[in-house]
Amino acid sequence: MTEQVRLTVNGVAHEITVEPRQLLVHALREDLGLTGTHVGCDTSQCGACTVQLNGAAVKSCTVLAVQVDGGSITTIEGMAPEGGLHALQNAFWEKHGLQCGFCTPGMIMAAADLLAGNPDPTDDEIRHGIEGNLCRCTGYQNIVAAIREAGSTLRAGAPVPAGAQD
């Protein structure tokens, strides 16, 4: 048995055929080829699969594809126009907020949600705000620094230049 699901991902409308048990993360990765969203666990603990669903961060391994019918999703690939970087992406790069990079897409998506609700978080609020996302490489210190930096960039309203690649 399969179901038809309509969803908009990074601004592009798709219609996919899925098994009812198909997780959103697998729909994104396997059906749509958006492999920037990662799978790090099987118990909804790691947050590597975090995406934005209708504007809020969700763990896409905890959502069935059929549940998002009609929904709008942003993944790491849709954070900035091609060739550009979102303030968070730039700050993670600047502050060495990643090592292996495996947690990074989920971390950035969770941080975007945090900053949307709290544009000027304290370090403590950042640390609690990303509690659903595990990183084994960085000890979190530079992730916190990156989110703080991105917050101040976004508050200043400074547009992030397209192609800010250096």
Binding site: T35, G36, T37, I76, E77, Q89, W93, L98, G101, T104
Partner: peptide, 10 residues
């Protein structure tokens, strides 16, 4: 190496 990782292109 970071540009590919922060954009989901690792």
């Amino acid at each position: 190496e970071d540009p590919r990782f922060i954009t989901g292109k690792g």
